[in-house]
Structures are given as C-alpha cells and as structure tokens.
Amino acid sequence: MTLNLDPNIPDPDGFYQELLGAHEGLSKEDSDAFNARLILTLANHIGDRDVLRAALWAAK
C-alpha cells in the first residue's frame, strides 16, 4: 500500500467542522494533547509502517 495523497474524505467541509468542533472549549495545552492522541489513534488504524513513514515525510 502507498500513502494516498489524493482527496479521500467524503464531505470534506463537514469533516473539517467536526474536527475543529472536537477542539472547541479546549485550552491550547489540551488541544495539543488531543491532537497527539488523535494522531496515535489514526496511526494505529493505518498500521502499515511504510505508509506511516511516508506520511511523516509528507507532513514535514
């Protein structure tokens, strides 16, 4: 499997709203911690080490 960098999320505006909604009311510190937990959760779902490594590069 290779890292998909093409649009892949249905209803992108709805997703973005939900993502920011999850941060609502959090302090900056809590938001950072939330992001870390979210990244770990998503990374576990992906599982594939090559894909995860490619994602680390893509986000740099």
Binding site: L5, P7, P12, F15, Y16, L20, H23, K28, S31
Partner: peptide, 24 residues
Amino acid sequence: TEISHVFRNAVLEMAARHPFARPL
C-alpha cells in the same frame, strides 16, 4: 481560536504540495 488557526494554515501549506488538502 489558536488551534483552528493552526489547522487552517496546515491545510493551506499542505494544499500547495498535496492534492488531498485542496478540498479542505
């Protein structure tokens, strides 16, 4: 908020390089 600004700019930065961020 600060965090929504961080996400917004992350989307803009990535949209220049990766098509996936453009619909956002």
